[in-house]
Write a protein that binds this DNA or RNA. Structure first.
Lengths: 193, 193
DNA sequence: TACTATAACGGAGAGACTCTCCGTTTAGCA
DNA sequence: TGCTAAACGGAGAGTCTCTCCGTTATAGTA
């Protein structure tokens, strides 16, 4: 799971690190805009590196997808961490969920690329675990504050989110549905079962 | 949505129909085995047609995916129809659900191809409607016979199925989970809520 | 700072795959 | 049986992928 290599003795060269980051960032942008078939040499050019460099870091197109995917997951996990500072815990949760929707909406072309890497891979399990881990504190804070019901786990929430995103795939309706769902999570909502 | 064209006056040529069918069948097999990157000229060769013929019928790789997809959906819908003859309605339902799992398991390589066409397209809505329509009689028969609870719709069932397939993606565990679910659908199961 | 060993860079070019174009063939109709 | 529109096939041009290796830059050392 580690990215930066420490193959033998010498420290990894700084330009290598820089180039890898540049490539991933550029790839994120380009795939979002043009979809999974974006030309790799165009990405290399736009990132200001040679095509050889791109291929050394990411031997296959899929490897590049995967890097981009991890990057996005990391981003969402960090966001969850930041939102834990937010005053209102329910609002924090809502914002995080919305951020997920927005990510999907903004990066339309990326979804098709994502689905491919994610399918059946170890990566899917990893991302799920990573996001679950990031989400749990957010939930627990709400529960501790008495603002959220206690019988919903991060797993449940994440699965629901995926379901909504999958079914809807864009449009504000996802946001509305999520808001309804969040309202349902409030402790003072109608008692279930 | 129509496949066979009736562009102007003359009837569609029989060899055209035959070739189109042959191509879709071959493509189904090849994509299943080799995944979405299978070479199109190999498919043409194996189907016994020229590459030009393949491209006339399916101008893009995606068009071919889509044809294969519709083909599979049709297959499942027909199967539901046949199973409506089955004596035990609950068993019929169970068999249909299992057929879905088996389809996914057998055609591993196809799933990645499918996901691509399905995403956000009119096709997704169409398949959902088609399968819902095919599934509803199966359910209603069970309800009418007093063997199935009445508060689950075909939509609910299909969504659950998709969820299970998505989360698991192969292995017997999907089958086991489905069986549990089907047991839950029986009228004589523990009363809910 | 200067030097050396080594890792990373860049891009030309070979190879693979896609897709079009058009001369040839064939099915439908009278 | 002959005519015509439609379909066929595949050569070849164009595009994209990916490797290979001479060149360049960095980390470590004296």
């Amino acid at each position: 799971m580690g990215d930066g290599a420490a193959k033998s003795s010498r420290r990894e060269r700084s330009d290598a690190v820089l180039n890898r980051e540049r490539i991933v960032e550029t790839a994120t942008r380009v795939f979002s805009a043009q979809g999974r078939n974006a030309k790799l040499d165009a990405i290399a050019r736009e990132a200001g590196v040679g095509i050889g460099t791109l291929y050394r870091h990411f031997p296959t197109r899929e490897a590049l997808f995967e890097a981009v995917y991890r990057h996005e997951v990391e981003h969402l996990a960090e966001l969850a961490g930041e939102l834990a500072q937010e005053a209102d815990p329910v609002e924090a949760l809502r914002q995080w969920l919305h951020a997920n929707v927005r990510l999907m909406a903004t990066k339309k072309g990326m979804i098709e690329a994502m689905q491919l890497v994610a399918y059946g891979s170890e990566l899917k399990a990893y991302s799920f675990a990573r996001l679950t881990g990031a989400l749990t504190p957010l939930l627990e804070r709400g529960v501790a504050a008495g603002a959220l019901r206690a019988d919903i786990t991060a797993e449940d929430l994440l699965r629901t989110l995926v379901g909504i995103l999958y079914a809807e795939a864009g449009g504000d309706s996802s946001l509305r549905i999520l808001d309804v769902f969040v309202d349902g999570l409030r402790r003072n909502s109608k008692a279930p079962s």
